[in-house]
């Protein structure tokens, strides 16, 4: 099925600004789903609030556009109630890591079979350019007019620390990598986390004097490298891309099936 058949054309044009990275990520996710030949009726996309979260409305799956930060909590209800569904949860950096931080670490811990996609543009775009927990020190934002003093989370380290069984990172520049990582993430049995660095030329770029979208994508090309590459050894400040964790661990819904089995045996007691 061509990728455009996964789109709800009725709802276009989309709300994203020219140069935004989110459209690339949308196509990357859809291509992964297409290559895996998932049926539309077997896919649920759940999102929260923000620019990134509008992604779900444009896709022709069962789509649930929820509350700021709560996407993973709603998604857990969907998945646990009907484990046969493929649940994909695109979120923004503020959405997933600030207001949704608690749900994020607990979804990692629970290892429920869903895929979280953190579309990280290091800024709150929809509300007009405030710093997020992934902005980091020195970033300029409308709520940090003299520079941000907050340290940033490292999504990968946080997910690993919380027990994530599949943790990966790529960028909007590396389209082919988005597709290949998303395929593996969706196929992974357990909770998978994919951080995708995305550009927001309108707010992050403008505030931080990064010129336009293409210069921001050049940054992703020049300042990132594959995990453990020679380039990383030569320049430790480079951001690593790739799959950091991919391990087998018992999955939440399957574990609960065992509870049902045990409880059913003792039904009469």
């Amino acid at each position: 099925m061509p990728v455009q058949d996964y789109i709800r054309k009725r709802f276009f044009p989309h709300i994203w600004c020219g140069g935004c990275g989110h459209g690339i990520i949308l196509k990357g996710i859809l291509s992964a789903i297409e290559e895996l030949q998932l049926q539309k009726k077997d896919v649920v996309m759940v999102s929260g609030i923000g620019c990134s979260s509008r992604i779900v409305g444009y896709t022709d799956f069962h789509t649930l556009h929820t509350l700021h930060g709560r996407a993973l909590a709603f998604a857990t209800g969907v998945k646990f109630s009907k484990p046969s569904l493929n649940v994909i949860v695109p979120m923004g950096d503020g959405d997933a890591m600030a207001i949704g931080g608690n749900h994020f670490i607990h979804a990692c811990r629970r290892n429920i079979n869903m895929t979280a996609v953190i579309m990280n543009n290091r800024i709150y775009g929809m509300t007009g350019g405030q710093f997020s927990p992934l902005s980091g020190q020195g970033v300029m934002a409308t709520t940090a007019p003299l520079g941000n003093i907050d340290y940033a989370f490292d999504t990968v380290e946080l997910a690993k620390g919380a027990g994530g069984t599949f943790v990966a990172r790529t960028t909007a520049y590396h389209y082919a990598e988005i597709v290949s990582i998303m395929k593996k993430a969706i196929q992974h049995k357990g909770f998978s986390v994919v951080e995708i660095l995305s550009q927001c030329p309108t707010y992050f770029g403008r505030k931080n004097k990064m010129k336009g979208a293409s210069e921001m994508m050049d940054f992703f090309k020049d300042r990132t490298t594959s995990i453990g590459s020679d380039a990383k050894k030569a320049d430790p400040t480079l951001i690593e891309r790739g799959i950091f964790v991919q391990k087998e661990s018992s999955e939440y819904c399957e574990n609960y099936d065992k509870i049902i089995e045990m409880a059913s045996k003792g039904k009469e007691s």
Binding site: L64, R70, A73, T76, G77, F80, N102
Partner: peptide, 17 residues
């Protein structure tokens, strides 16, 4: 769930299935 907020969200998600 991890908190009361998540519990409420989860029952809404489950109801939709």
């Amino acid at each position: 769930m991890e908190d009361e907020i998540a519990s409420m969200c989860a029952i809404i998600g489950a109801s939709l299935t």
